[in-house]
Amino acid sequence: MGKLFAIIGAIAYYLFYPFLLIMILLGPIMEFPVLLEIYELETPRAGLTLSVLCIVGILLFLSYKYPRLGWLYRKFPVMIPLLQMFFITLTGIELGIFFANLWADKFLYSKGVAIFLSIVSLIIVRSYLSYWYSKYPISYKVHKV
């Protein structure tokens, strides 16, 4: 019975998996212009939203945790660090969009503060990735000097 549930779960997961991949791989490329557009046109724009990002993050984590859901990673091992990088970058961009929208739509603070918060969120995720991959390099061939 447990196995049946696991198989049904895996089938349900794989039906959604292509959308998950599209969202994560194209997300940063598609969302960054949205962030720029908010500041250029001074109008709020809906991004992927943080709640969608939560679901994407949890589903991605499940595919890392259960080998049954990660056949693609066995075929293309590079996907493991790649998707993590893209997801964390997308998180930063979405956070930037969230702060930008609080200014553009609700005027909770000035434009300067909004730009500052957006840049800070991008810098935080970028430095986190730099720190992380300098500590745990993707390849053993990479040696720190």
Binding site: G57, L60, F61, Y64, K65, I80, P81, Q84, F87, I88, T91, W132, Y136
Partner: peptide, 8 residues
């Protein structure tokens, strides 16, 4: 990487 993603 898995743990990092989980925390993220």
């Amino acid at each position: 990487i898995r743990r990092s993603l989980g925390w993220s």
